[in-house]
């Protein structure tokens, strides 16, 4: 317990987090206005606006997976608790944002392609990413103490899927819009798109920080609980 006693405030909510939360609150009020004022896409019409949501959440699912993969590699090689906490938090975010992408995509596809789901390479690899990180969370939740390293190994494979998702539209013939949509975006759509990207990225890091703090508190609580149990304070 000595390492925790030296920094009693390490787990308190930092000021930076509060400040960014404020930015988020303002951002989530403003960005919808930008999205509404962006020009209508001529062929797809109003449904195209889901793009301002779908692309940022899909990007964050990939970022979460990559972060979890890198942090897991660090954890496996150095046994760093911090890396493990970051990996677990990022994996959770990959699942949450992945679900957002997997739900928002089909809503658009139903209008644009006429079907909710196509066995397209990008869709398949994204679904695979999502399943891998769900399995990661499952292993951590139900695997007991021995399963943390195992889950870390899983996260590495999950992260390896990310470049595949990214390049899938350039290599295979797919019906999913290509990555080149972004640099060739209509000038009027750019403010809404980049504001949404920025805002969601800030949200990602705020959630990552808060989730990591929760994970650390949980570990401290468990240590304290075990110590108290050993000292005979819980016998009643």
């Amino acid at each position: 317990m000595t390492n925790n006693a030296s920094s009693p405030h390490s787990a308190s909510l930092p000021m930076g987090l509060l400040a960014t939360s404020l930015i988020l609150a303002v951002g989530f009020a403003l960005v919808p206005q930008l999205i509404l004022s962006a020009p209508n896409e001529p062929t797809m019409g109003f449904v195209q606006r889901i793009f301002y949501f779908h692309v940022p959440v899909a990007w964050l699912a990939m970022l979460g997976a990559l972060t979890a993969g890198v942090a897991s590699a660090v954890y496996l090689s150095s046994n760093s608790e911090t890396a493990d906490e970051i990996a677990a938090s990022a994996a959770e975010l990959a699942v949450v944002f992945g679900l957002c992408a997997i739900v928002s995509g089909p809503l658009w596809a139903r209008k644009a392609w006429g079907v909710f789901w196509q066995w397209d390479v990008r869709l398949t690899t994204t679904a695979l990413l999502w399943i891998i990180f769900v399995a990661y969370l499952f292993a951590r939740r139900y695997g007991g103490p021995g399963a943390r390293r195992l889950a870390a190994g899983l996260a590495l494979f999950g992260a390896a899927d990310v470049p595949l998702i990214y390049i899938s539209v350039s290599i295979w013939r797919t019906i999913h819009p290509k990555t080149s949509v972004v640099p060739t975006l209509d000038r009027g759509m750019r403010p809404a798109f980049w504001a949404a990207m920025l805002l969601f990225s800030v949200l990602f890091f705020v959630l990552l920080g808060m989730r990591r703090r929760l994970e650390r508190l949980r570990k401290q609580f468990n240590t304290l609980y075990l110590d108290a149990d050993e000292a005979g304070l819980l016998d009643d």
Partner: peptide, 9 residues
Amino acid sequence: GRARGRELL
């Protein structure tokens, strides 16, 4: 290893 619920995991 000694992970719980191995058959399921």
